[in-house]
């Protein structure tokens, strides 16, 4: 147990170091200068003579370069980046200046958790169940398998747009964007929660439906493989019912699916970006998109850092879970 955990923690620390370094480097590799973007916006807004404007622009440029510490050499910026991570300071947003990045992210996180977690876990659970069912019924399989393949090849945003069109434009029963109506303020009232759920259902469905197909296909194939395995045959030879054999094969088939869940968590965060943009849903994905459009280094870094930590934590939890659900992993690390 200790050996397993130590090993995993070391791997995760290395992964975090590399991922965070990339997180620092990637925004800086984008073409263009974020400060120029801010300054140009001010320049357009202000009026006055050309020479005056250029002087003001120059002063503003220098001021912001200093404020965002972009005028110092890159290695100092990098060192500062790490110091800030350990002091919990993610900097000030350029685009939503002077709002601290941490506040922006924290205000988005609840929407993400309430939207992503149910759709990921529910599609995992339902998908596995339907997949296992398809594996044992030839008739159901003939209809379900093609359906799963269509579902899993559908892009998240396309399904999102389709849902918005059907429920928002054609039927006009559900709102098309945002996390709640503009007239509302977040509160624990029945009216707000109802309004929130009405906004929540479409983004939730678009993620849920698309991920469902992948889980179901994986489970179906695994169950068919397990039902052909020697232990299934032995149980059949000793007169075990199909129900018991399926129970045993489900137990083994779920293991690679859990590994898949750990891997999927990473891509789901990326998938949620497109979904959130389609629905203008104020989660991390949407904020990250805004940050990228405006070359907001601190905001991009902050969002990515959050995603990195989220993915690593989710993987870590599943690694620990594996100790409990797979005796082979447990035995390999507890003995010797």
């Amino acid at each position: 147990m200790k050996k397993y955990l130590t090993r995993k923690i070391i791997i995760y620390l290395i992964t975090f170091f590399i991922a965070a370094s990339l997180d620092w480097a990637i925004p800086r590799l984008m073409p263009g200068n974020p400060v120029s973007l801010i300054v140009s916006r001010f320049a357009q807004a202000s009026s006055g003579s050309a020479s005056q404007a250029s002087l003001v622009t120059k002063q503003m440029f220098d001021y912001f370069m200093q404020a965002f510490q972009l005028n110092i050499p890159w290695w100092e910026q990098y060192a500062l980046f790490w110091r800030n991570i350990f002091t919990g300071n993610l900097g000030i947003s350029m685009y939503l200046y002077p709002e601290p990045v941490i506040n922006i992210i924290l205000s988005a996180v609840p929407y993400d958790i309430l939207f992503l977690l149910p759709s990921i876990l529910l599609s995992f659970w339902v998908g596995n169940r339907i997949g296992a069912w398809a594996a044992r019924s030839k008739k159901a399989d003939n209809i379900l398998l093609p359906t799963f393949y269509i579902l899993t090849s559908v892009p998240y945003f396309w399904l999102g747009i389709l849902l918005v069109w059907i429920f928002g434009t054609l039927l006009r029963v559900l709102p098309m964007s945002g996390a709640f109506s503009y007239s509302m303020t977040p509160s624990f009232t029945f009216a707000f929660i109802f309004d929130y759920l009405k906004h929540w259902i479409l983004p939730f469905l678009s993620l849920f439906i698309v991920s469902l197909g992948g889980w179901a296909i994986g489970m179906r194939n695994m169950i068919i493989y397990e039902l052909e395995s020697n232990y299934s045959r032995y149980m059949g030879s000793l007169g075990a019912s199909q129900r018991l054999i399926r129970k045993y094969s489900y137990r083994n088939a779920i293991l690679p699916q859990v590994t898949g869940l750990a891997l999927q968590l990473g891509t789901i965060v990326a998938g949620a970006i497109t979904t959130e943009i389609v629905f203008s849903y104020p989660g991390i994905g949407y904020i990250l998109f805004e940050g990228i459009m405006n070359k907001d280094y601190p905001l991009i870094q902050g969002c990515f850092l959050f995603i990195i930590v989220g993915v690593l934590l989710a993987n870590f939890v599943i690694d620990i879970l594996y100790m409990f659900i797979d005796p082979r992993v447990r035995i390999a690390y507890t003995e010797g």
Binding site: N230, P327, R328
Partner: peptide, 10 residues
Amino acid sequence: FAMDAMSPTK
């Protein structure tokens, strides 16, 4: 196939 006649997770 007695070597793998039993499910590894039970």
